[in-house]
Amino acid sequence: MAEIPAPARERRVGRLLATLIVVLIVIGGVGSFLIARGRWWMLPVASVHGVEIDRLFNTTLVVTGIVFVLIHVVLAVFVWRYADRGTGRAAYWHDDRTLELTYTLIPAAVMITLVSMGAVVWAQVHSPPPPDAMVVEARGEQFGWLFRYPGKDGVFGRIDPARISVKDNPMGLDPADPASKSNIVTRDLHLVLARPVRVRIRSKDVIHSFYIPAFRVKQDAVPGMTVEIWFTPTREGDYELACAQLCGVGHYIMRGKVKVESQDAFDTWLAQQSH
């Protein structure tokens, strides 16, 4: 079709379809968002920081949503309006310092705003934990989670990987360390409502990621490192803990259970745990 300009009919159809598709993207994008928001969206937030993260997410969504619609509408209008009609020439127009400066500075201003907001929330998430926070250790392995509460003395005993045995000592506690005696190792994670919790995240083998969607919490469990994060659950109930970093064949079954309950219920549960 080296024919230039193309036949009139072909041009008209091309123009119509091109415009239509861009319009469809806008309608499809916005429409699918409206449908998804009710059915396929984030779990209801259940932590203090989660509220801030959601707010930042929503702000970003509004800003990007506006830009998405705006640029696509402009694109549709241009495609419709400036299709080749076989007559006349395009404008010989290729530089406009003012225009270019405007659309460099506006995104820059938007970005600076978003960066500042993001920095504030990020600083909150990683602020020093409150002194009354409880402590628990979460250790990932192929393919499951194990938790350790320090017990009465509040001290975690030494770990010796050589002592790890699936049946008797899955955590690898070193009995030579007196602090190990009071440590309590569990398969489920129980947390106290409205009480900040510091989670020390470790791994036995490869990299895992400690991910509780309802709390908007995610932190890689890197072998050889202990990374600590903290958060405050705000709603009682059962939650799911998932692994978010590819860790091998059973990555998808590495599910953990999390229960948020009152201090009393928590104390009762902890007392029942053997060891």
Binding site: M1, I4, P5, A6, R11, G14, R15, L17, A18, I71, V74, L75, F78, V79, Y82, A83, D84, R85, G88, R89, A90, A91, W93, D96, L99, E100, Y103
Partner: peptide, 16 residues
């Protein structure tokens, strides 16, 4: 992105 969009302004677009 804006430059590409601006290129289309008052162009004579051929829908190849």
């Amino acid at each position: 992105t804006f430059n590409w969009v601006a290129t289309l302004w008052r162009a004579r677009i051929r829908f190849t």
